[in-house]
Design a protein around this nucleic acid. Structure first.
Lengths: 161, 161
DNA sequence: GAGCTGACTTAGGGAAGACAAAGTCAGCTA
DNA sequence: TAGCTGACTTTGTCTTCCCTAAGTCAGCTC
């Protein structure tokens, strides 16, 4: 596992991508709404019912997700119905799928229902099950224990450095 | 992307692995503490300072993480110091690394600091950068748009089905 | 043009999570 | 054995999240 860098104490935590990602999706109902969106849910009522949140919460979160660019709100019309709006994942939202997949996988492994998982997510092209894995740009599979953490270009240090 | 299964409305959301994972880690400070643990932080004060939470919060979250089996609290002794306790990731905790990595990656891509990321996470064996990717058991890389969702063995349906 | 219905908003209130400031405690060192 | 220090705990307050219950509103259908 990681060795703690010698000057780790001089690092500031004010520029953390994880923290900034959590500013957007670091909230249970938001992630569950995105789960539903990734499963194909599009309508307001369905989001609220399937996620299990009240309408005010669904409304507020969906609005925020649209404002943050993770969902797009667009009009549609079913035959014999008035025009309504549906919520669809944008590219920005779809790219959270690894997060959702990794969470699901961990839940399956460590907090599973005795009956087994309630959904199976399959690769559209071949039908095989999908999961999230760690890989390095050299193409190796990476074990959670085999990572090193290095300072990056955006690192801020405590004053005087 | 996913086609909505025809009887999706009959599904119950009471057995969702993502929701159960979020019951354990679905909270900003918990995930940031795990980030620090994965970066090698071990001591109470360091956790609080580096995550940027107050001591009461750090104490409560660390205690819960130990209770949930994601961290192990174990005694250690530095020369000339009294015995203290350190917090180290268990296997259960380390397996959340794909979640943290996927979040970091998304934050780097969509909510980056202009100066760039503050850390670079590298594969210990080869030094190349690590990221989270979706892959199917057949070995293909999976595009976020190329998933299908199917009912699993633990699916619960609404009454009458 | 009245009603219906899906999609919200408003109002009021409880629980959880956060903070700062101050206190406690254990056990080495001196 | 007195002091120091890291590791918490306690107290009190504020904000955020979420709920239920009850409105509002738009625009097709009839």
């Amino acid at each position: 596992m990681t060795d703690l860098l010698a000057d780790r104490d001089a690092w500031l935590t004010t520029n953390c991508s994880i923290a900034r990602a959590l500013d957007v999706v670091g909230n249970r109902s938001t992630l569950l709404l995105l789960r539903e969106a990734s499963f194909g849910t599009r309508r307001f009522d369905d989001f609220a019912a399937r996620v299990g949140v009240s309408e005010p919460v669904a409304a507020a979160r969906l609005k925020q997700l649209v404002a943050d660019g993770l969902l797009e709100r667009r009009p549609y019309r079913e035959a014999g119905q008035r025009t309504r709006h549906e919520y669809v994942l944008t590219d920005k939202g779809a790219q959270l799928l690894p997060v959702l997949t990794a969470l699901r996988q961990w839940g399956d492994a460590w907090a599973a229902d005795p009956a087994g998982p309630s959904v199976r997510v399959a690769h559209h092209d071949c039908g095989a099950e999908v999961h999230a894995v760690l890989r390095c740009t050299a193409g190796h599979d990476v074990d959670p224990d085999a990572i090193d953490v290095h300072p990056g270009p955006g690192l801020r240090r405590a004053e005087g450095n």
